[in-house]
Design a protein around this nucleic acid. Structure first.
Length: 630
RNA sequence: GCCGGAGUAGCUCAGUGGUAGAGCACCGCUCUUGUAAAGCGGGUACGAGGGUUCGAUUCCCCCCUCCGGCUCCA
């Protein structure tokens, strides 16, 4: 047989040769440093046979930043962790231990809880393993054999995994630890030059909250200590961009224990909010939306009709009244909009009817799920409900997608699209979902949007197109969403009178493009690292009089700029000019004007955020600002 | 909600079974400033409740909040 190397040369090999055989055929050094092979672009264990004619690429310990090379390193590291834990904690049961983005974890069922202080001890045990050196061997056995083996080792989680696995089972052994594992793995532990355990957390077996909770140990590993150091440095840098840190430092918002999950918006934070609101209003109007306002609380009967009582009650704040009635504070606007639409018999001439409302919503999120602005209980969606005929669905979806592109382009955000399909416990029939899902998927394809499938991730009333972005800590958050809903209008008995003088069912598209103001602003803070573009900056220009004698002239400049509509303040000369410039930089104000003896309205000393300095007349500066406006 | 961790001044942190300290911020005074921190002085704090103890910020219990995960979701 032969395989094709990356430089297109062909390598002749005996039949059934493995990746390692191929490496050996090229050179002993390569064989020693090899960590895995990419065969036909797919990662494969070095111990597995190649196929005739395949293009192959051998990755080595020198591919220190290749994601696949890191993956295999970390996967093997997870096995070292398990070996160490089994030695230190007799009676522990092992579950699973995969590599993940930036590291790896292993889930254990400990007889006694372990704590942060245990980590150094485990790390030391792993260091010992690394010092001794470990080799991985791979074997393939039948399912029955594997099951018997893990049963005799009293590893119930492994037995369960075997039960649900398909085909033969592969095992990897290093030291005295054998794990059920698909691989691939390193040849030996030599390439693991830096390994660090990063934390302990609870995690449900198989990600299911009805299953027992296991103890997850997180760690990370690299091909060099320098890479680990750089990784930790990046984390520290990311932390500085964290919207919770910047929100405080830039005086944008805060949280108080008297209302967990509900932000207090400071004046500077409200500037950003209001800029987003203005953009939304302007663009909604341009795109044929109409603004409405609906109640915040409704009786139980409304929530029963909408399906929220059945599907969403856990997340709702309820208000019991004396007379056995219960009211619920709205977690979504849709039921109110259904009532509004159904208030009168609608004509086909009125459709599509696009109701927009950015009302406060309250969702009783689990206490442990709250997270800065990205997961709050008091949430404000830039919500809209598009009531339309079946025929209008494609064009309405196209309109939403166009709007999305416009909006995200405005901020330079590049979200990932996810197509979320029917969940367990959906409302409505499979046929209705077939239709709704096909409409959404067609819209994605028609508009050339790449997406991943979120099977079972849809809302209880309809499938969704979701937009996700990643925060500085690598967590993915959903922002915008477009959902097609047949259920809600049906439940509210909504119809329209067609041109044929009969009543037809109404469809509703639920759509929020920012998603929520809170989460969107949280993401923007991190996206810009607090250095907002001019049109969003809470303070756009600060004027600094050099001394007391310049305060009056500086204030006049401020007034001129304010009159032109800009957000401007003055930094009074209570401190040295150097210190006030520093403060202005730390507050990330786009322009700082220093005004002293040398300046006049004809020659302003203008410092841009970051330190660049120019000289400009006030009228020219105003002209320049106009080009930066929203 | 679950697992683990943490709550000391506005912020970042130190510290103790005998009621606490620093830097920054803030306030006052001095200086009168030229593109990322001028000098001196000053005020302010042990998350809530209960217990052990002569005495608890410190030890124990419970609650709350926050942090890292899990689950869940804009």
């Amino acid at each position: 047989m032969k395989v094709v190397l990356p430089d297109q040369t062909e390598l002749e090999l005996p039949n059934r040769s493995t990746g390692l055989d191929a490496a050996r055929a090229i050179g002993p050094k390569l064989a020693e440093q090899a960590v895995l092979v990419r065969a036909n672009g797919i990662v494969q264990d070095l111990r597995l046979p190649l196929e005739d004619g395949q293009p192959i690429q051998i990755l080595t310990t020198r591919d220190t930043s290749d994601p696949d090379a890191l993956y295999v390193l970390r996967h093997s590291s997870a096995h070292l962790l398990a070996e160490a834990v089994r030695r230190l904690y007799p009676g522990v049961k092992v579950a699973i231990g995969p590599p993940i983005e930036n590291g790896f974890y292993y889930d254990f069922d400990f007889p006694e809880p372990i704590h942060d202080e245990d980590l150094p001890r485990i790390e030391a045990e792993i260091a010992k393993e690394l010092e001794e050196g470990r080799e991985w061997t791979r074997e393939q056995i039948s399912r029955d054999e594997a099951k018997a083996r893990f049963e005799s080792e009293h590893e119930p989680y492994k037995v369960q995994l075997v039960d649900t696995a398909e085909g033969d089972i592969s095992l990897y052994t290093q030291g005295d630890f054998t794990d059920l594992c698909r691989g691939p793995h390193l040849q030996n532990s030599k390439p693991i030059k830096a390994l660090k355990l990063t934390g302990i957390a609870g995690a449900y077996w198989r990600g299911d909250s009805t299953q027992p909770q296991l103890t997850r140990i997180y760690g990370t590993a690299f091909y060099s200590q320098a890479d680990l150091d750089a990784h930790l440095e990046r984390l520290a840098e990311a932390r500085k961009r964290d919207h919770r840190v910047l929100g405080q430092r830039l005086d944008l918002f805060h949280f108080d224990e008297h209302s967990p999950g509900s932000a207090f918006w400071h004046p500077k934070g409200m500037v950003i909010w209001n800029q987003l609101e203005a953009l939304r209003r302007r663009e909604n109007a341009r795109r044929g939306y109409v603004e409405v306002k609906t109640p915040l609380i409704y009786d139980k009967a409304l929530w029963v009709t909408s399906g929220h009582w059945e599907k969403f009650r856990e997340n709702m704040f309820l208000i019991p009244l004396d007379n056995d009635q219960v009211y619920g504070i709205k977690p979504m606007n849709c039921p109110g909009h259904m009532l509004l639409f159904g208030e009168t018999l609608r004509s086909y001439r009125e459709l599509p009817l696009r109701y927009a409302e950015a009302a406060p919503l309250h969702r009783n999120e689990l206490a442990g799920a709250l997270h800065g602005l990205t997961r709050v209980r008091y949430v404000t969606q830039d919500d809209a409900h598009l009531f339309c005929t079946q025929e209008q669905i494609p064009s309405e979806l196209d309109g939403c997608i166009d709007y999305l592109r416009f909006l995200y382009g405005r901020f330079g955000l590049e979200p990932r699209a996810e197509f979320s399909t029917r969940p367990d416990g959906k409302l409505g029939s499979d046929e209705e979902w077939d239709f709704a899902e096909s409409e959404l998927e067609a819209a994605l394809k028609r508009n050339g949007i790449e997406y991943v499938l979120g099977a079972g991730e849809g809302s209880f009333y309809g499938p969704k197109i979701d937009l996700h972005v990643t925060d500085v800590l690598g967590r993915s958050w959903q922002l915008g969403t477009i959902q097609l809903d047949r259920q809600m209008p049906q439940r509210f008995g909504l119809t329209y009178m067609g041109a044929d003088n009969t009543e037809h069912p109404v469809f509703v598209i639920h759509r929020a493009l920012y998603g929520s103001f809170e989460r969107f602003i949280g993401i923007l803070i991190e996206h810009y690292g607090g250095a907002f573009p001019f049109w969003l900056a809470p303070v756009q220009v600060r004027v600094l009089p050099v001394g007391e004698g310049h305060l009056e002239a500086a204030t006049a400049i401020v007034e001129r700029l304010r009159a032109a509509g800009y957000r401007v303040d003055v930094g009074e000369p209570t401190e040295t000019i150097g210190k006030r410039i520093r403060a202005s930089e730390l507050e990330k104000i786009p322009f700082t004007i220093v005004f002293g003896d040398r300046e006049s309205e004809q020659s302003l000393a203008i410092r841009e955020r970051g330190g660049d300095q120019t000289e400009d007349s006030l009228p020219d500066f105003l002209t320049k600002l106009a080009t930066l406006g929203a």
